[in-house]
Design a protein around this nucleic acid. Structure first.
Lengths: 234, 234
DNA sequence: CAAGTCTAAACTGTCGACAATCGGCGATTA
DNA sequence: TAATCGCCGATTGTCGACAGTTTAGACTTG
């Protein structure tokens, strides 16, 4: 009688994943604006601060580079990415392209269970709108859009969304405030869900276009208004 | 009077980028099928073979992981990615989503110069069709599609395309042959370019859909036919 | 003979060390 | 006075080493 390895894929807990932990800490610091765009990320410094050696820090930095949060200048080190206005356009352009598609797919795959998750998430959006916690609000907003990608069922698309979202989180973090009243933002998610439930591709695309396009314009406006990014500490 | 630094831009030579070189070698080995899906990539082995230490190899491996060519199992090492039929679907689904959009943007940005580059590339496709060099043919094919993304002008989209293409190259390399007659493939690019030149979004999308959709179906068929991937040498 | 156990070898995760390189700053020169 | 040159400290790129874990295989046991 075989005591087979318990079949299913639980993502092996890698409690000793230093690289992952370092990456998370760095991401946090960047998104929260503790590491400003343009500033140099000194390997030894991070390593000492976290009580690890430079090797894991380097690997984590490469990860964040691939993710677009850091840029590497060979022989000079890693720097926190600086965003220009056209970066915002690129990100939103790509996001729009992906989310249109994701929403259409999501509509096709929609089950009562996934529909409820989307509805519930909109409720959460309304609930957090009352809290004075912009970071949380941004987070829950992305969670809704991420759900759509998840329901669409394309893992690569989901990862792409996550990458775009982490760049956007950084930008929004830098702006320091939301582009709209939280309640208003929460409300504007409803037509998108309605369109997905209705299942007409054209309507879905139209509503996603409107929703994302609005954010695009507003964030773009803010970025262009407050452009001289918070001091690129060498 | 300023003796400004001798004006022009020589592309900085980064000759000492071990990580990059290792990554390229590994990618090569994988795409050419010298490292089979499922096989373990032993850091020390690669390091010795290339005459470097393990550190650069690890960093390169992390890069390929992010790119989807390798998967990392904590404490067990890196393994060459195995593709299942639904991976093909994911990749083509995303590729279709991106290229539709890219083509429409490319049409919008089209200059006589970029148009000529596209035309020229189709000629190259016809020329290489006569050679008995599938790898080259695949390469030139991607070069055409990459040009479209380049002309579209969204760097992030271009990078996404490159990532998808490297996964596809690996799959096609494994299949070991093209899904169609090279001349036929070359020919089917013409309507796509024509639609882009004409500039009607609907026509562009329709032709891209047809072109990519065809490849999708054919590659999908081959993958399902020859499914038991060449021995996953543990 | 299948299943289970134990041991040695093979690897990965991390670290600390060292040489090569970069950026800044003061000295030098026109 | 301003542009250059050359030196010094700081930082990166790379390496070899070591501990802890996983894997492969020989060996036992029912």
């Amino acid at each position: 009688m075989r005591t087979i390895s318990p079949p299913v894929g639980l993502p092996a807990l890698a409690e000793t994943d230093l690289v992952g932990q370092v990456a998370r800490r760095l991401t946090e610091a960047i998104v929260q604006g503790r590491l400003l765009p343009g500033s140099k990320v000194v390997e030894a410094g991070i390593a000492r601060e976290l009580g690890v050696s430079r090797a894991p820090v380097r690997e984590a930095a490469r990860l964040l580079e691939q993710q677009g949060l850091l840029v590497a200048h060979p022989r000079r080190g890693f720097f926190v990415r600086q965003f220009a206005a056209d970066d915002i356009d690129e990100i939103y352009d790509l996001r729009l392209c992906v989310e249109r598609h994701a929403a259409v797919l999501a509509a096709r795959n929609l089950t009562s269970e996934s529909r409820d998750r989307l509805r519930r998430q909109i409720e959460v959006l309304h609930e957090t709108a009352d809290l004075e916690d912009p970071a949380r609000q941004v987070e829950e907003d992305y969670r809704f859009h991420r759900l759509i990608c998840e329901i669409a069922g394309n893992r690569r698309m989901l990862r792409l969304f996550d990458d775009l979202a982490s760049e956007l989180r950084m930008v929004i973090g830098l702006i320091g405030r939301l582009y709209d009243d939280p309640h208003e933002i929460a409300r504007t998610h409803e037509p998108v869900l309605a369109a997905i439930e209705a299942g007409h591709p054209e309507r879905i695309v139209a509503h996603v276009d409107y929703h994302i396009g609005h954010a695009w314009r507003e964030v773009g406006r803010l970025v262009r208004e407050i452009p001289p990014w918070p001091a690129a500490a060498k």
